[in-house]
């Protein structure tokens, strides 16, 4: 029974992946991609990767989908022209061939793995007590492979700088996005008043349980950013001008705290990003708390886009 469900799920995922590739309109492709993300979430749940499922739902399907919808809407007016100038049949077939070859190589690689596959899971299980956290994923992300997480946070910051750098000179330092004009008594404003308290509690909860259960700062921050975007879209609050000092400080605070703790580790624990024994858990908490507002702001502002209004009201 569950085999049939799994095969059906895999078939749907493959079908949606194909749809995203062959759909003629960018908007239709993006919709396929978002549904693909949701089904991929279910697949991760079936594989008992709840942490990955949460991340896929929040970031892969939700946030990336929203970013792509924004991009597709902007490109809509130029889409017909772009299709005319598009690559010819030989290029397309070549691209398809290369994609299939890469997929086949990956499939061969995965299938050729020895059984049981090489794994570091026993090592993680043996040393997780040192970190003080109960969720092995969090232990890997913030203790054993903290460097990856640090670089991830910095990459996101660079991405936001990249978005901002698309601003015309005269709007530099101004408010991102356009001023939203929504009916103050409309349904959107109503939801933007009702939903955020629930969403913020859920976000903080997911963030807080990340130490011992599936969850964490990325998933929690995505929920918080979504609530913030909802309030902004309903016109209840405006995006801050990107020149604000408090905003800049919060944006770099997370990575800076992370790096500072890493540098302290050089002195106290003989390696960058190593935690002195005994206080690993508090340090991990400090990093998580510092990263949470940074990630919320980065994810929210990335969706709002480049500054489009002057710095002065």
């Amino acid at each position: 029974m569950s085999d049939a469900l799994n095969i059906g799920l895999a078939g749907l995922i493959l079908g949606l992946a194909l749809w995203s590739i062959v759909a003629r309109e960018a908007f239709a492709a993006v919709e396929g991609f978002m549904a693909f993300g949701l089904l991929l979430t279910l697949a991760w749940v079936q594989l008992h990767g709840i942490d990955v499922a949460l991340t896929e739902a929040a970031i892969g399907g939700g946030l990336t989908g929203a970013l792509l919808i924004g991009a597709a809407t902007r490109l809509r007016s130029t889409e017909a022209a772009a299709r005319v100038e598009g690559p010819g049949a030989p290029t397309r077939w070549l691209a398809a061939g290369v994609s299939v070859a890469v997929t086949a190589a990956l499939a061969v690689g995965v299938l050729a793995l020895p059984v049981p596959a090489p794994t570091l899971a026993p090592d993680v299980a043996a040393h997780i007590a040192v970190t003080g956290v109960g969720n092995p994923i969090t232990a890997v992300l913030l203790a054993f492979r903290a460097m990856d997480t640090l670089l991830e946070a910095i990459v996101l910051l660079f991405a936001l700088i990249g978005v901002w750098s698309l601003a015309p000179d005269r709007f530099w330092g101004g408010r991102p996005g356009l001023r939203q004009q929504a009916d103050p008594n409309g349904i959107l404003a109503y939801v933007a008043r009702v939903l955020p308290p629930i969403g913020v509690i859920a976000g903080i909860y997911i963030f807080w349980v990340g130490a011992d259960h599936p969850g964490g700062k990325f998933q929690g921050a995505t929920l918080m950013a979504a609530m913030w975007l909802l309030v902004m879209m309903a016109g209840l609050a405006d995006a801050p001008p990107i020149s604000r000092t408090w905003l800049r400080i919060l944006l770099v605070a997370g990575p800076l705290v992370f790096i500072a703790i890493g540098v302290v580790g050089v002195v106290t624990a003989d390696a960058f990003l190593a935690y002195p024994p005994g206080i690993a858990k508090p340090l991990i908490l400090v990093i998580e708390f510092a990263l949470m507002p940074t990630l919320t702001l980065i994810l929210g502002l990335m969706l709002v886009g480049a500054p489009q209004r002057g710095p002065l009201p």
Binding site: I187, V191, L195
Partner: peptide, 16 residues
């Protein structure tokens, strides 16, 4: 409850 809320909102917005 959350699905009811989001469904009602989204369909209202699309219809408007």
């Amino acid at each position: 409850g959350l699905v009811l809320l989001s469904g009602a909102t989204a369909s209202q917005l699309i219809a408007r």
